[in-house]
Design a protein around this nucleic acid. Structure first.
Lengths: 154, 154
DNA sequence: ACCAAAATCACCCTAAAGTATGAGGGCTTT
DNA sequence: AAAGCCCTCATACTTTAGGGTGATTTTGGT
């Protein structure tokens, strides 16, 4: 702010300085040639100047800065994955179905998923079918692709 | 410049005019009614108050708002995809095989890939088998997953 | 022009995936 | 208590995927 301050408010500062210079000049003239009749006006001017400056200073100091949020797009290789539960509910997907979907995305076969979850192959088939329905896809590769797009899985 | 001058510095001009007007007013008041001992102090206080307010107003009007720029990082899905040709050659993957792999990643069935590439289903099967060999996987879901990890496909 | 790699296709077979339907038990909501 | 959802499992069937082998044609490079 130090150098920016003069840059931004140089008009006001110059105004102040010139007014001050003018007053000094007038005072000098007054002293030189004129009787001090206008002392009051001069003082008033000085006070006005001073407190104008004070007001400006106050305003600049106390003004709460406006925050401008600039969204900077950053390409991140692998972002922290935030699970979109809203989307999950919206699709009506159950926990178990999501679990199966995740394992599907890991490239496991239905048989492997069944073993991993200690259920039968048929159960996994049922789950995967429902997942395909809810994701409106026909194949597991499509399901995985779509689930990733919807942030259901990393 | 004439109207531009006023446009740029009208605040300053108004300030000057109002200062002058105030002085005249006070002088007039002084003449008219009051001879008080502490007239000067009162006037000075009024002036200080008034011009402090004026300064504040000026600062708020003229100063471009103090801004705090917050750069919010927006995570953008890896738009720029840099294809790793080295890896491709290292694996001994051919163009056509990569093409099949890409379509596989889009969730297409072998039949759909065959239609899209104007070749027979058996050809696609041959290609996909070779892809699986070279990627050392057993299923297409695994192939897609690994290919993405290796930056062979977006 | 030749060789190697790539691309194409076919056939057969098995495994896996996917569809459809039904059914029973557990849980929550109404 | 009934309704509804979820999870489970089964059976039967169709489709797709994948492995293996072999063959022909294109293509790219020395």
């Amino acid at each position: 702010m130090p150098q920016g301050f003069f840059g931004k408010y140089h008009s006001i500062i110059l105004y102040g300085l010139s007014l001050g210079a003018l007053l000094v000049l007038m005072k000098w003239l007054e002293w030189r040639f004129i009787i001090i009749d206008y002392a009051f006006e001069i003082y008033a001017g000085l006070i006005a100047l001073l407190f104008t400056g004070l007001g400006i200073w106050l305003a600049l100091k106390l003004a709460q800065p406006k925050t401008i949020t600039i969204e900077k797009q950053v390409l991140v290789a692998n972002t922290e994955f935030v699970f979109d539960e809203n989307c999950l509910n919206q699709l009506g997907m159950s926990r178990r179905e999501l679990e199966v979907l995740q394992l599907m995305a890991d490239g496991l076969s239905n048989q492997q998923i069944a073993e991993k979850l200690f259920v039968s192959l048929n159960t996994i088939k049922t789950h995967s079918s429902k997942v395909f329905e809810k994701l409106e896809v026909q194949r597991r590769t499509q399901a995985v692709e779509k689930a990733k797009r919807l942030s259901l899985i990393p």
